[in-house]
């Protein structure tokens, strides 16, 4: 397995029925880059993220994740969908953190973190438990391994969810509005875990409304509207001095 951690897209198009949600999307994310995607609701930013780990399929265009065509193999005339096993393997290399955490409620925090390695990779249980403990410790939840998700606060659940994704040793981590469902006072604890992760050189794509996080942690910023990428560039530069009037209008409202 190579350690690539890049995302490359050209001309991605995606529609749900008659509604086009992604149009002409180009994306180049380098290994270790932190990229924030911002934009109003319904702008397609979540859909773009979901395409990158195969929760949605793209209709058209090139999508390479970790240097491989994602979910498809290419022949002279077409892209052919990969068999489920191969797709699952590609997915294990891309971690996803959801807005609603989506922890498995029937498993403890530790079991949640162990689920991927044990069930998918066939890792030895003892070894996986040890690793799960380390990961939970790294998100500040070392003593919470035996707790069920329902016994944890939103912020704690989201940190377990991050640990669960990290347990698969992904090259890329995707965050879909990871703090939007949290109490305002719990937002910080999740962001600081993400900040730690960024320092360790993980490639991260973050759909967020946290402009502070974008400014402090992000390398690049993408502003999306109506299925298009309207503006992209250095995160601080775009936030300070947006080129496009649409970006400026949006930032004026949220900042």
């Amino acid at each position: 397995m190579s350690t690539d951690g890049t995302i490359h897209a050209r001309g991605i198009r995606k529609s749900f029925g008659p509604k086009t949600v992604l149009q002409n999307i180009d994306l180049d994310i380098a290994s270790g880059e932190i990229c924030c995607i911002i934009g109003p609701s319904g702008s397609g930013k979540s859909t773009l993220l979901r395409c990158i780990n195969g929760l949605e399929t793209v209709d058209q265009g090139i999508l390479k994740v970790n240097g491989e065509n994602f979910g498809y193999y290419e022949t002279d005339s077409a892209y052919h969908a990969l068999p489920p096993k191969k797709l699952a393997e590609q997915r294990t290399r891309v971690g996803m953190v959801f807005q609603q955490f989506n922890l498995f409620p029937n498993m403890t925090a530790r079991e949640n973190v162990m689920a991927g390695p044990v069930l998918v990779k066939g890792t030895d249980k003892k070894q996986a438990a040890k690793r799960a403990h380390e990961l939970l410790a790294s998100v500040g939840l070392a003593s919470f391994g035996d707790h069920y998700p329902a016994q944890l606060s939103g912020g704690q659940q989201q940190r377990v969810a991050i640990a669960r994704s990290l347990a698969m040793d992904p090259e890329i981590m995707l965050f879909d509005e990871p703090t939007s469902a949290l109490d305002p006072e719990k937002v910080g604890e999740v962001l600081s875990v993400m900040q730690d992760l960024a320092k360790k050189g993980m490639t991260m794509v973050v759909v967020t409304h946290e402009m502070g996080f974008a400014r402090e942690v992000s390398d690049s910023l993408i502003f999306m509207d109506d299925g298009f990428i309207v503006e992209r560039g250095d995160a601080r530069k775009v936030l300070r001095d947006p080129k496009e009037p649409r970006t400026r209008a949006f930032l004026e409202k949220v900042l």
Binding site: L55, P84, M96, F104
Partner: peptide, 25 residues
């Protein structure tokens, strides 16, 4: 639906998802 997506994103196979995520819940 989120539960199934979480299982998918971890790379679980269909049978695994059924046994470990869907049926228990």
């Amino acid at each position: 639906k989120g539960q199934i997506e979480a299982a998918d994103s971890l790379g679980m196979s269909g049978a695994m998802k059924m046994r470990k995520v869907i049926i228990p819940q």
